[in-house]
């Protein structure tokens, strides 16, 4: 499916970006986890959002989402696994589907958690980030699913459904993936399980893994005043660009990123 702009992340920054893309008359797809999985959803009281003291995180998110939906933004639930630019388009894969756009706004929040020992080394030899992609290659095998969201649990059920024996680790803190030539076991918080595959289903992929070559410093995406990154057509907004990790800042950055992404997409139309 082709859009003018794809927004990765459906929190305050992403929803603000989407609404502003629509305000400029361009089409937009927002890819995100369910709203209830956003970290802000759990905030009982937000006291520094101007004009709305004491509002809850869930109320704010719901209002933001409705505003973006009413403006005509489209939504797809899922995790963006990878992105690449070919020609003048960005191709973005979302679970077992893909979408394309001229511009992308990265607003996926802070990717919490570093890579575990063995994770990078055993990628392609038992380590996977996509149950729907690679699950079939592990049929009849014992695999571990490291999940941090309710959506991850559903992916573990999917693996069971296609014939894998899935061992689920719920929000593990400290893991190591073990094996020399390929994955042989995983150890999480003191529990070791012998498995042939490990599916790591974090709430979001780290920005640098999503966009190879993306400039970042101290784990935060480097942007300029236009919220533009070093990659053509890629903008970033919200917590992923750094602190303060506050709603107002995310919404403001989302506005700039949305407008600039819409303008970037429009520049292709004008040339035609």
């Amino acid at each position: 499916m082709a859009y003018d702009v794809i927004v990765v992340g459906g929190g305050p920054a992403g929803l603000s970006a989407a609404q502003n893309v629509r305000a400029r008359g361009r089409t937009v797809l927002v890819v995100s986890n369910p709203l209830e999985e956003n970290p802000l959803w759990k905030a009982k009281q937000v006291d520094n959002y101007l004009g709305l003291p004491g509002v809850s995180g869930a109320e704010l998110l719901t209002a933001f989402r409705r505003h973006a939906e009413d403006s005509g933004a489209e939504f797809q639930e899922g995790r963006v696994l990878s992105a690449l630019r070919s020609g003048e388009d960005w191709y973005v894969s979302i679970g077992n589907t893909m979408a394309q756009a001229k511009a992308v706004v990265l607003a996926a929040g802070v990717a919490r958690g570093k890579k575990f020992p063995g994770e990078a080394e055993l990628l392609g030899r038992g380590v996977s980030y996509c149950a729907t992609c690679d699950g079939m290659l592990y049929r009849g095998k014992r695999v571990a699913v490291l999940g941090w969201t309710p959506s991850a649990k559903k992916e573990a059920e999917f693996l069971e459904g296609i014939g894998c024996e899935a061992v689920y680790f719920d929000k593990p803190r400290d893991c190591a993936i073990l094996g020399a030539e390929k994955v042989e076991a995983v150890r999480c918080d003191g529990v070791t399980e012998a498995v042939e595959g490990v599916f790591l289903l974090r709430p979001a992929m780290a920005p640098g893994d999503l966009f190879p070559g993306l400039a970042a410093e101290g784990g935060f995406v480097t942007v300029d005043r236009n919220m533009e990154t070093n990659l053509p057509g890629v903008f970033a907004a919200g917590d992923c660009t750094g602190g303060p990790l506050q709603v107002s800042k995310a919404v403001g950055e989302g506005l700039i990123a949305g407008q600039k992404a819409a303008a970037f997409a429009s520049s292709f139309l004008e040339r035609l």
């Binding site: 696994l81 990878s82 992105a83 690449l84 070919s86 191709y91 973005v92 894969s93 979302i94 679970g95 077992n96 589907t97 893909m98 996509c130 729907t132 992609c133 690679d134 079939m136």
Partner: peptide, 14 residues
Amino acid sequence: WAPWCGPCQMLGPV
């Protein structure tokens, strides 16, 4: 590749 895989579909045109 496989048809059910999103990243594979993305790589198709490339």
